[in-house]
Computed example of a mutant assay.
Amino acid sequence: MTATRATRQRDVISRVLDHAEGPLTVGDVLEQAKNDLPSLGIATVYRTLKLLTEQGRIHPVVLDGETLYEASGKGHHHHFSCNRCGRVFTLHTCPVSLPKGTALAGGFIVQSHEVTLYGLCPECAAKNGAE
């Protein structure tokens, strides 16, 4: 019975991450997964995130020193972090043209890049205009 339960937990946590607008904190994953599994505990979320990371199904994203998680396979993308509500969104456009192999001054060779933009999400920007 434990194996079936663990599989259900993995499935629910995977589904939460697959449908997220951007990377989620462990607390966000727990909160959203509890909609389907009210008895889910934080230790199970941590174990499941570790397992899914090891399997390559998800990967960690570190923003401002905090580790968030998102589903793998989304291709090249960047993130937008809202300064007001704290949500992080996936951006499907790249504001930086730095192809792999680009040589930078000082002898640096680009292998990949990550960009996080900070500001107000559309919802918070709309509220900001109304205040």
Rank of each mutant, 00 (worst) to 15 (best):
T4D: 15
A6Y: 08
R8N: 07
Q9H: 06
V12I: 05
I13F: 04
S14A: 08
P23A: 00
P23R: 03
V26D: 09
G27W: 09
E31G: 06
N35A: 14
D36H: 03
D36Y: 03
L37M: 07
I42Y: 13
A43G: 07
V45Y: 10
R47V: 05
K50Q: 10
K50V: 11
L52H: 07
L52R: 05
G56Y: 05
R57H: 09
I58P: 11
I58R: 08
P60I: 08
P60W: 06
D64H: 14
D64M: 12
L68E: 10
E70I: 13
A71P: 08
S72T: 15
G73Q: 12
G75Y: 07
H77F: 11
H79V: 11
H79M: 13
F80W: 06
S81H: 11
N83R: 15
N83M: 12
V88C: 03
V88K: 02
V88D: 06
F89D: 12
F89H: 12
T90I: 14
L91I: 10
C94R: 11
V96G: 03
P99D: 07
K100V: 02
T102C: 02
H113A: 00
E114N: 04
E114A: 02
P122F: 01
E123K: 01
C124F: 00
A125H: 05
A126K: 06
A126R: 02
K127Y: 11
K127A: 14
K127W: 12
G129D: 14
G129Q: 15
E131F: 13
